[in-house]
């Protein structure tokens, strides 16, 4: 079987997400369900919904799926699953059960590719200690894959994107730039080793990161995905009504990302994400235009952005590095709500 999944995706498809500004507008027009047991809903644009079952148990629900980000079906399955599971980890929860969500054009692509995608997802779910107990597939092109996941957490230990408080330091656990690297790959502007580094980063579960967060009693975090580091930091700042300051020089980057950005290899999603932040953001203190755009590069299965009390920051960082996130770094801090929600320095 010789399938290149990237051939199935429209060239220049940039990123498959609906622009965040549009999404917010539409979601705002829907009435929110009212139920005292809903701990987290879409009101704060968090990573997953959280529902309290009793004093000891809350369910965390999320789903995510997208078109191929790489050529190899097995690798795509792994990345899509890691990405879906990430929202559970960002809430500090443990994934319990999952369902496959698949769109696959059976007339265009050999069914072996379908099997490989599912196998990638299965292996990643197994690594996460999650059971996939069903799913749903429809015939559609291009292929898309992801999981709907149910996780569990103690209601008192839910980590939300509204939990950042002034004084906190911000730690990012994975380097950014997957969107730029994937665009660079399509245009053959970067070497295979750089692409592989990005794929490996996307495949990595945020599981150990979530465990470290619980170990240190962290209350505020999010995972960095389609809206980019800047977009998710902004959502976090809005949810917590604080200002987030990010020093872009300190943000770890995947290899070759800066050079590609400098050449103009900036996917359309970066501009959409930047558009969303405009008005809520001050980037005057950041002279480097490339870094500003990198801040809004849409990430697939990105790292955790963790808000941690300053006295614990170094220790948490050390733990994260030891637990398999060697590029973890303190990239900024949280201050009382200022003129803008987000400052890029």
């Amino acid at each position: 079987m010789d399938v290149n999944l990237l051939d199935t995706v429209e060239y220049g498809g940039c990123s498959a997400k609906i622009p965040p500004a549009k999404l917010e507008e539409i979601l705002a027009s829907l009435p929110l369900p009212s139920d005292p047991n809903i701990i987290v809903d879409i009101d704060t644009h968090d990573d997953a919904g959280v529902y309290r079952i009793n004093d000891d148990l809350a369910l965390v629900l999320t789903t995510d799926f997208f078109p191929p980000v790489c050529s190899d079906p097995y690798e795509f399955g792994q990345i899509a699953a890691a990405n879906s599971l990430s929202d559970i980890y960002a809430m500090g929860a443990v994934p319990l059960l999952a369902l496959n969500i698949v769109m696959f054009p059976q007339a265009d692509i050999p069914m072996e590719a379908y099997a490989e995608i599912l196998k990638g997802g299965f292996d990643k779910a197994t690594e996460a200690g999650t059971r996939i107990i069903g799913g749903h597939t429809i015939d559609d092109a291009p292929p898309k894959y992801g999981l709907a996941v149910v996780g569990t957490v103690s209601p008192s230990r839910v980590i939300t994107n509204a939990g950042a408080v002034p004084g906190d330091r911000l730690i990012l656990t994975k380097p950014v730039g997957t969107g730029i690297i994937l665009a660079g790959q399509r245009l053959q502007m970067t070497e295979e080793a750089n692409v592989q580094a990005a794929l490996d980063s996307m495949k990595q579960l945020n599981r150990a990161g979530a465990e470290v967060m619980q170990q240190f009693d962290i209350r505020g975090a999010t995972d960095i995905t389609g809206f980019g580091l800047g977009g998710h930091a902004l959502k976090m700042a809005k949810a917590g009504n604080v200002t987030i300051n990010i020093e872009m020089e300190k943000v770890p980057l995947l290899p070759d990302v800066y050079r590609l950005a400098d050449e103009g290899c900036l996917p359309g999603a970066s501009f959409r994400n930047l558009e969303y932040a405009t008005g809520s953001m001050d980037a005057e203190g950041l002279d480097d235009y490339n870094l500003r755009m990198i801040a809004f590069d849409a990430q697939t299965s990105g790292g955790l952005l963790i808000s941690v009390a300053p006295e614990k920051a170094e220790e948490v960082l050390t733990q994260l590095i030891e637990k398999g996130y060697p590029r973890s770094a303190i990239i900024g801090n949280v201050t009382a709500r200022g003129k803008t929600y987000l400052n890029l320095l």
Partner: peptide, 13 residues
């Protein structure tokens, strides 16, 4: 004939 990000790459060059 090119879609993003190619036009920006060409323009920057």
């Amino acid at each position: 004939g090119h879609s993003c990000p190619v036009p920006l790459i060409m323009a920057k060059k």
